[in-house]
């Protein structure tokens, strides 16, 4: 029996960049359900089902930006990995920052990959078979 496709949460403060991800998904025929959060605070609320949001199905595949208002991507990762209910989330960084400090910080918090926004194409290409063939945490 085919399992339900994993949900994707896009955490991104730029409307255009969110649209870019959705458009790339559409073009690559990725049909997974997508959700959008504009910063770390909103994303955590959606994952936990707090702050008036209904909880997203777990686990979630998260595409995470770094520079965002209220709570940036690295701080969000800190909270995420501390929270037993959502710490299994699979996180890919998707950011304009290629700084070594950011890359180091992200991998220290166990991200599955780190992509620059200019490489959105390769990321989406990789995600398609990944979403379909990968065994996710239960």
């Amino acid at each position: 029996m085919p399992e339900k496709n994993i949900d994707v949460l896009i955490v991104e403060d730029s409307e255009i960049d969110t649209m870019a991800v959705l458009r790339a998904f559409r073009k690559a025929d990725i049909t997974n359900a997508t959700h959008q959060a504009c910063d770390g605070v909103e994303a955590l609320d959606m994952l936990r089902g707090t702050g008036g949001k209904s909880a997203l199905p777990q686990p979630c595949l998260i595409l995470l930006d770094i520079n965002m208002p209220r709570m940036d991507g690295i701080s969000m990762l800190d909270e995420l990995r501390e929270d037993d209910g959502i710490k299994d989330s699979i996180v890919f960084m998707l950011t304009t920052s290629g700084h070594t400090v950011d890359r180091k910080a992200a991998y220290e918090r166990n991200v599955a990959g780190y992509f620059l926004k200019e490489n959105l194409g390769p990321l989406v290409e990789m995600l398609k078979p990944y979403c379909q063939g990968n065994e996710f945490p239960v």
Binding site: S14, I16, D17, M19, A20, R23, T96, K117
Partner: peptide
């Protein structure tokens, strides 16, 4: 300035 400029380019590309 790079971030909005990149958005402009993405929109123009679309």
């Amino acid at each position: 300035l790079r971030s909005p400029l990149r958005s402009i380019d993405i929109l123009a590309q679309w």
